[in-house]
Every structure is written in structure tokens, then in C-alpha cells.
Amino acid sequence: MTSILIIAGDYSEDYEVMVPYQALLMLGYKVDVVCPNKRKGDFIRTAIHDFEGDQTYSEKPGHLFCLNATFSLVEPGLYDGLYLAGGRACEYLRLDQDILSICRDFMARKAPLAAICHGIQILTAADVIKGRKLTAYPAVAPEVRMAGGKFITVEPEESVVDGNLVTSPAWPGHPALLRNFVSLIGSQT
């Protein structure tokens, strides 16, 4: 069975956890959602980010999401794909050395890796995007460039694929991001 690992945390963007989780389950994949320092059955708080005409997105409380796997038990080599949820959680998740190691493992194996919105901050901290084309929420563009990546500006509904890496700027890009991620997984399994 194809296994996907989703990394999220408190104040990950609600849609960017729930939509891929449910969509990938619907396709018959085993999907484990984990957060550092939390265990299976623990909850994370999510945030809803919306685009309402302000200079940046608005933020509202999201749902409680029940984790279905324990972070400390993750063995990256057992997973066929990695999905990095966006949102404010990425500000602190990118400081976790175990998460950075997981990202490096997927990139070294050229295994499918999807990152959305601020999830790309984890990849910049892992130092795995030099020379890669990718997109992110526009406020992350300077980090992408400083980490040696080539930032591609696309509409929020689009995604960018570069080898095993697929990225999108925000949750409106889920159809494109997930379509491309699933396509990469299909070519690997």
C-alpha cells in the first residue's frame, strides 16, 4: 500500500492539512499525519487563512485535527511521499532537526515531496532547494532565493513541478498540487 507522510503542527493552515489528508485517503493511500512532540491521538489546532482584500491573508481559528501517528516513530524510508502543510506552524517546524532530516531523506531519494504555501520554509531551512524551481506564498519568495532556489510566480490555483518536488502558493492550488503529487507517486510506486 502506498504510504504518505504529512507533517503539520499547531496553527498549520486548516485546508492544507485536512484537504490532502482526506483526498489521499480517498485514493486508497495510507496517510499518517504527525507533529513533533505529539503522539497518535493528540490534537493540533489549525488556522483558517482567507483572502479578503487585505494586504495579507486573514487568520481565524480552524478545527482541531487529531493526529493519527506518532512523530517519534516515523521511519522516512517507509513512506512513498511527503506533504508539508503550510501556515504559521512552519515558522517553528523548520527549527526541528528531525523534520529537516526527513526532508533531506526524501530529496536524496528523489521521492515525491509536496509543499504548499509556507511549507516551503521547511525546505529552505533543510537546505535542499539549491537550483530547484518552486513556488510558495509570495512572502516566502525572499527565503527561496536566499536558499538558492528559483522562485516561480504563479497564480494561487497553480503548482510548479521540478523533478520529485511539487509546490503551490496557497490552498486554492490543491487540485493542481495534489494532481501533480499523485502523478509523481504513481511514477515511483
Score class of each variant (00 low, 15 high):
4 I>H: 03
5 L>P: 01
6 I>M: 13
6 I>D: 10
8 A>N: 05
11 Y>N: 07
12 S>A: 15
16 E>K: 06
17 V>K: 01
18 M>F: 03
19 V>S: 04
20 P>F: 10
22 Q>D: 15
25 L>M: 12
26 M>V: 04
29 Y>H: 15
32 D>G: 02
35 C>A: 14
39 R>L: 13
40 K>Y: 06
40 K>C: 11
42 D>V: 02
44 I>A: 12
44 I>L: 14
44 I>E: 05
44 I>K: 05
48 I>A: 03
49 H>M: 07
51 F>V: 08
51 F>W: 14
54 D>F: 15
56 T>A: 09
57 Y>K: 06
58 S>H: 13
62 G>N: 11
63 H>K: 14
67 L>P: 03
68 N>I: 04
68 N>D: 08
68 N>R: 06
70 T>Y: 09
71 F>W: 08
73 L>P: 04
74 V>G: 02
78 L>R: 15
83 Y>R: 07
83 Y>P: 10
88 R>I: 06
88 R>N: 09
91 E>D: 14
91 E>M: 11
92 Y>K: 01
93 L>W: 12
96 D>C: 08
97 Q>A: 14
99 I>N: 10
101 S>H: 02
101 S>V: 00
108 A>M: 07
109 R>Y: 02
116 I>Y: 00
116 I>P: 00
118 H>Q: 10
122 I>Y: 02
122 I>P: 00
124 T>E: 06
124 T>M: 03
127 D>F: 06
129 I>L: 07
130 K>N: 03
130 K>C: 00
132 R>G: 08
136 A>P: 02
138 P>D: 09
148 G>Y: 04
158 E>Q: 15
161 V>A: 05
162 D>N: 10
164 N>L: 06
167 T>C: 01
170 A>R: 03
170 A>I: 09
171 W>Y: 06
172 P>H: 12
173 G>W: 05
175 P>Q: 13
175 P>F: 11
177 L>P: 07
179 R>I: 08
184 L>V: 06
187 S>A: 15
188 Q>V: 13
